[in-house]
Amino acid sequence: MKKIIRVTTVPISLGGLLKGQLNFMTNHMKVIGISSNGDGKLAEVSQEEGIEVIPVEMTRKITPIKDLKAVYHLYKIFKEEKPDIVHSHTPKAGTLSMLAAKLAGVPNRLHTIAGMPLLEATGVKRSVLDFVERITYACATKIYPNSFGLYDIIVDNNYTTRDKLKVIGNGSSNGIDTSHFDPALFSLQDKEELKKSLGIDETDFIYIFVGRWVRDKGINELITAFKRINNENSDTKLLLLGRYEKELDPVLPETEKEIETNPNIINVGWQNDVRPYFSIADVLTFPSYREGFPNVVMQASAMGMSSIVTNINGCNEIISDRENGLIIPVKDADSLYNAMRELAQNQNLAQQLAIGARPRIMELYERKAVWKSLLNEYKTLLT
């Protein structure tokens, strides 16, 4: 039986971003997962996906000594296991595992690009990240951008040649399970009870954001825009799901203060199940600066919601302006405010945009279709 090793920097990516995919692949090949241990989280991935796992400590920051140790550890694993394919996700895991796999002589070295943090970097940091990116691409035999927009960015920056690049299916690293993200699963009573528990009135218009509360996700612009909306119309609420990453990408102090003090910003923190909150919201607000192929926008659309997104790759592939949502410029709080205001004032428009959201997801990004497309790619490479 053919053997594949899948590598991510942290186990939440291995078991979350690729949920179900690893188990699906075990029907066709032996699958081993590698990631940092994550306080025992890697063992949970092993149990949930039914795969063997091997912990290799990797950091998300640039840590040269730890990185070299990780490369050596990965190299030893690859030499011992002799996989037919090493397939990595997330930036740090990609660089370390592609280098180690090349040194170990692994024939198929695959890396999925699901976003490029370096796009927001400048100066020396950007130069370093560009160099690291080129190392990853040089060591890989195939690069899979998970959106067509990312494909174009990679080509425009001359990171690698077109013959190494391919988008699997219609994009996305794992697609979406539309039987799980289904608004029909939540009754009117369920929604009324949740609204009541959160202090939301039936007349309130509800915006929702799901993701990391960081600068790159457009949180500063979102809070600025919502504050203006809310001052004009007190029957508006903003549901925030997620958490800060203050060490990596902090928001402005005034943004954090507004989140903590505005009674109409409802901070529910990190939630393992975001569906109940989508079920009561009216519009997803997702003003991100950069993405690969955003799961949150797929999830909201599958739950039958319209979305306000920025004009970036991934977002502008899932959302078509004025068809299933609104597309606005990046880093533009005024445009975000105008879009949020328009949908609150014209709720019929918000509902019309929502009608086309779920069918588009079901047609293009159903999870099992994405898995089958990737499996076909593996089979092609292995023959």
Rank of each mutant, 00 (worst) to 15 (best):
I51R: 01
E363S: 11
K19D: 12
G123N: 11
E120V: 14
N174T: 00
D190I: 00
P107N: 10
T122I: 13
L165R: 02
I154D: 10
V309L: 04
I168V: 15
P91G: 06
A70I: 08
V214K: 03
D249I: 01
T8N: 11
L238D: 03
S187Q: 07
S97C: 10
F293I: 03
K246L: 13
N295V: 09
K257N: 12
G242C: 09
R322P: 08
K191E: 02
A354M: 02
P183W: 00
A101S: 12
I355W: 10
L353V: 09
I312N: 09
D182K: 01
R243T: 12
E256L: 09
M340G: 05
K3H: 09
R243D: 13
G94Q: 03
S306W: 00
P117R: 03
Y365I: 08
F209S: 06
K125F: 09
N262I: 00
R215F: 11
N231Y: 03
K217V: 05
D334C: 04
G149H: 07
T112I: 08
D216N: 15
N338H: 11
F131A: 12
A281K: 03
L188T: 14
E221Y: 08
V283M: 04
K92S: 00
K142M: 10
N23K: 14
I5Y: 02
E245H: 11
V309Y: 07
I12T: 13
N146I: 15
N376S: 13
K2D: 12
R358G: 04
M298N: 11
Y244H: 13
V45G: 04
G199A: 01
N170K: 13
N146M: 08
T63S: 14
E202G: 10
P83Y: 00
A339F: 02
I206D: 01
A138F: 14
M303P: 07
I176Y: 04
T203P: 02
A369P: 01
E232Y: 10
R212D: 03
I229N: 12
A350Q: 10
K82V: 08
E256Q: 14
T26A: 01
G292H: 01
E256H: 03
L382A: 10
S88I: 11
D182L: 00
P276I: 02
A225Y: 02
G50K: 03
I168F: 06
M303F: 05
L150K: 01
P294L: 05
L150P: 05
V71D: 04
R275F: 05
V309F: 04
S306N: 14
M298R: 11
Q47A: 11
V296S: 02
K66C: 07
K82H: 12
M58F: 03
I259L: 08
K379Y: 12
P11F: 05
E366S: 15
T310S: 12
V45L: 05
I265P: 05
K61G: 13
L188R: 12
F226V: 05
P329N: 04
A344P: 02
Y207A: 05
F226G: 04
